[in-house]
Amino acid sequence: MATASATTPCATTRRCAAILKEALWDQVKGLLEDPRRVADEYRRRLRQARDETREPDEIVRLERQMATLRRGIGR
Rank of each mutant, 00 (worst) to 15 (best):
M1T: 07
M1F: 05
A2W: 08
A2E: 02
T3D: 13
T3L: 12
T3I: 04
A4C: 05
S5K: 06
S5H: 05
S5G: 01
S5Y: 00
S5M: 04
A6H: 03
A6N: 06
T7I: 12
T7R: 13
T7W: 07
T7D: 03
T7K: 11
T8C: 04
T8V: 09
T8N: 08
C10Y: 13
C10R: 14
C10W: 13
A11W: 01
A11T: 08
A11F: 10
T12L: 02
T12N: 03
T13G: 08
T13P: 01
R14M: 01
R14C: 11
R15V: 07
A17Q: 00
A17T: 00
A17K: 00
A17M: 00
A18D: 12
I19W: 06
I19K: 08
I19T: 07
L20G: 01
L20W: 04
E22A: 13
E22C: 07
A23K: 14
L24G: 05
L24M: 11
L24Q: 12
D26I: 07
D26L: 08
D26V: 07
D26N: 11
Q27G: 08
Q27D: 05
V28L: 14
V28Q: 10
K29P: 02
G30W: 11
G30F: 13
G30Y: 13
G30P: 02
G30V: 10
L32S: 09
E33F: 07
E33Q: 14
D34W: 01
P35S: 11
P35I: 13
P35K: 09
R36I: 06
R36M: 11
R37T: 15
V38R: 02
A39M: 10
A39R: 00
A39P: 00
D40T: 13
D40L: 12
D40C: 09
E41S: 14
E41N: 14
E41C: 13
R43V: 08
R44V: 04
R44T: 09
R45A: 03
R45G: 05
R45W: 00
L46N: 04
R47N: 15
R47F: 07
R47Y: 09
Q48P: 02
Q48K: 10
A49D: 04
R50T: 12
R50Q: 15
E52N: 03
E52A: 12
T53L: 09
T53H: 10
T53V: 07
R54A: 06
R54E: 04
E55L: 08
P56C: 06
P56M: 05
P56H: 05
P56L: 09
D57L: 05
I59Q: 00
I59V: 01
V60K: 14
V60E: 14
L62A: 11
R64S: 12
R64D: 09
R64F: 05
R64I: 10
Q65N: 01
M66A: 04
A67P: 02
A67T: 11
T68V: 13
T68N: 13
T68A: 15
L69C: 08
L69M: 14
R71Y: 01
R71F: 05
R71C: 04
R71P: 00
G72Q: 01
I73K: 08
I73N: 06
G74Q: 14
G74V: 08
